[in-house]
């Protein structure tokens, strides 16, 4: 049973990952990324990481890939990539070679080096009585409390950065010339009286 789940998950992961790097349309790539996430979900379940499997699907398939698709649709880049003009010569064969070298290095290192120090668990045992979520929460809110609170700061900073960067720059009133201010006020005035005639004249010029 374990092997069956492992093999199905591995097949999903490899198919999805190859789909992400081989398909031309970015929308298809994003959908293949979701496929990979479900493969990872199966492997997590197979190893008893129940909470992380659920969070993986919620965060990645539910939020991250949706954000990707939103940006793809928003920018209208779901057209095909121009393949013809390669700025860098031999980029593709060189990139595949480098990727293979990285893979061989990782596998070789895992063969020659020791994975396990044999030291006992430092942050709490994973096996034993109790649910996975309880152990994870216990560890998170005791030993890892400071990093956990720093992630809150990190998320706030990320939200502020996203708002600042995606905002269109609008000059504030102090930066506008008097003529531009007058023009803006008149355009607001005409829009206001067009929507509701009873409001006409309510937006007056400030008294000097």
């Amino acid at each position: 049973m374990d092997w069956a789940v492992y093999l199905v998950g591995a097949a999903m992961i490899l198919t999805g990952a190859l789909g992400v790097i081989l398909l031309r349309n970015p929308v298809h790539c994003a959908l293949m990324l979701v496929f990979t996430m479900f493969g990872i979900f199966l492997e997590f379940i197979n190893q008893g990481a129940d909470f992380l499997a659920a969070v993986q699907i919620i965060v990645y398939a539910g939020a991250v890939v949706i954000l990707f698709l939103f940006v793809i649709m928003f920018l209208g880049v779901d057209r095909k990539e121009a393949i013809g003009a390669e700025r860098l010569r031999f980029q593709r064969p060189l990139a595949i070679l480098l990727g293979l070298v990285a893979l061989v290095e990782i596998l070789a290192l895992s063969r020659v080096d020791h994975w396990v120090s044999g030291a006992p668990a430092q942050s709490g045992a994973l096996k034993g009585a109790g649910s996975n979520v309880a152990k994870l929460g216990q560890s998170l809110y005791t030993g890892y409390l400071l990093p956990f609170e720093m992630t809150a700061a990190l998320l706030v900073i990320a939200v502020v950065a996203a708002v600042v960067m995606s905002r269109r720059h609008q000059p504030s009133a102090g930066e506008m010339s008097p003529a531009a201010q007058k023009e803006l006020r008149e355009s607001h005035q005409s829009a206001l009286s067009a929507s509701d005639p009873s409001l006409a004249g309510r937006l007056e010029a400030p008294s000097e």
């Binding site: 990481a49 939020a63 668990a121 942050s123 709490g124 994973l126 890892y144 990190l154 950065a161």
Partner: peptide, 23 residues
């Protein structure tokens, strides 16, 4: 290694990945 620390690390990687995607 029978250590819950690895799973806590995955939790932090998820948070950092979400922030990274937003920015």
């Amino acid at each position: 290694l029978n250590d819950v620390g690895g799973q806590v690390d995955v939790f932090f990687v998820l948070v950092v990945a979400a922030a990274e995607v937003v920015v």
